Simulated scan of single mutants.
Amino acid sequence: MTDRPVQGLRERKKAKTRALIQKEALRLFREQGYTATTVEQIAEAAEVAPSTVFRYFPSKEDLVLVEAYPTFLDALREVPQEMGPIAAVRAAALAMLEGRSPEEVADGVEREKLMLSVPELWAASLENVGRTLRTLQETLAERTGRDVDDPEVRNVTGAITGVVVAVWLEWSKDSSMDVPAELDRALAHLEAGLPL
């Protein structure tokens, strides 16, 4: 038996509509380019009204950006408290990444390439990284019983984020990369003190 609440029909329909809109947007961005694709074209492909697209995605950039950290934070909260911060992040990241389907991985690669190649998306992505950084810092502070603005919590959070961003940038250039394995190696190297 699970503790998760069962989604009602309305919530499931909303989730399906949201996923369909995003899937069609990514397809059109791939085929036509991000700039050449309009919200009206996305709405038509998803068989919804443009206002429906904006209800789920307030801006065109939001069609590409994904807030991964709620899923990651759920995984991080399930990691035993006695694990150090880097080990805990490694375990949570692997749990989150290994749970993805091949289609989710392919969509992720597509989104990452778009975010790094379209200036508007790059700017929005940096804002997303900033929010994720702050949320990770808050979560690690909570796990360790320290103040969120503790310089050591900030430093550990920054080091973890730096390693993750470095892997992310590599992945955007080499979509064949085994991201879970590479991320785990990178975080293990960080955990070992970054010996050269």
Results as ranks from 00 to 15, higher is better:
S101L: 09
R90M: 12
L65W: 05
E103N: 00
A68R: 01
L94K: 08
A75Q: 10
P102K: 07
R77S: 15
M83R: 15
G84M: 10
A92P: 04
D74Y: 12
M96H: 11
G84K: 12
P85I: 08
P85D: 12
V89Q: 04
Y69N: 09
L73Y: 07
L63P: 03
P80E: 05
L94P: 02
A95P: 00
A87W: 05
G84A: 12
A91E: 07
I86M: 08
A75K: 09
L97P: 04
P85V: 09
M96A: 15
R100P: 00
E78R: 15
A88Y: 03
M83E: 14
L73P: 02
V89A: 05
L65G: 01
G99D: 13
E98H: 06
P102E: 06
E82D: 15
P102F: 04
E78M: 13
E78S: 15
A75H: 06
L97M: 06
L65C: 07
V79I: 14
D107K: 08
Y69L: 13
L63E: 01
A106N: 05
T71M: 11
Y69I: 11
L76K: 03
V89N: 00
E103I: 00
V64R: 03
D74C: 09
E103D: 13
D62L: 08
V89F: 05
V105P: 04
V66S: 12
V105D: 06
V105M: 06
P80A: 05
L76Q: 01
D74G: 12
A92H: 00
D107V: 00
L63Y: 04
D107M: 12
L97R: 01
R90D: 03
R100D: 01
L73I: 14
L97A: 04
Y69F: 15
I86A: 05
V64Q: 03
F72G: 02
A106S: 11
A88L: 02
R77L: 13
T71Y: 09
G84T: 11
S101H: 07
T71Q: 14
S101W: 08
A92K: 02
A91V: 06
P70S: 08
D74Q: 14
A92L: 05
A68Q: 01
D107E: 15
V105N: 03
G84D: 14
A93S: 10
T71I: 13
A68S: 02
V79N: 09
L94Q: 13
Q81M: 08
M96Q: 14
R100W: 12
R90K: 15
R90I: 08
L94F: 05
V105R: 04
R77Y: 11
L97Q: 03
A91K: 08
Q81T: 13
D74K: 13
G99Q: 12
L65A: 07
A92Q: 01
A95C: 11
